[in-house]
């Protein structure tokens, strides 16, 4: 179901938090940012999923204080692309999302799984401009 979203002046942009060595551009170059959607599409405390040009999916979150986070949308425990549909929260001062399938929690800044040290998901830098 397609609906024209209301637009504001702010667009959310993403890029991998740790650029791979093959990425030519330096982080200072603006065009390695990928525009995803209008800021108004985010609800505090909930996520949305974005399809990236390389076929990956990112899960984007907005917290209560207006900070944005993005991690890989794929839940590494189930393989399903559902992390954007998890509930977010704060654990020891750090933001996390809990997978809606089996409830494992992931740190939204580091991508580290709080319930299994051996598992980490990719993170993205996010900005709105």
């Amino acid at each position: 179901m397609t609906l024209a979203p209301e637009t504001t002046t702010l667009r959310i942009q993403l890029r991998p938090a740790t650029p791979t060595t093959s990425a030519v551009s330096s982080s200072a170059v603006d065009d390695d940012w990928f525009a995803v959607c209008d800021l108004s599409m985010l609800i505090p405390g909930r996520g949305v999923a974005a399809l990236l040009p390389d076929g990956r999916q990112a899960a984007l979150f907005l917290d209560r204080a207006g900070r944005m986070y993005a991690i890989d949308n794929r839940d590494p425990f189930s393989g399903a692309a559902v992390l954007s549909r998890g509930l977010t929260g704060t654990h020891q001062g750090r933001p996390f999302v809990a997978s809606p399938l089996l409830k494992q929690r992931f740190d939204l800044e580091s991508g580290r799984c709080l319930d299994d040290d051996s598992v980490t998901v990719t993170t993205y830098e996010v900005r709105a401009r």
Partner: peptide
């Protein structure tokens, strides 16, 4: 002031 958690929400 935080974002709560997946239990209490």
């Amino acid at each position: 002031g935080g974002d709560g958690c997946e239990v209490c929400k």
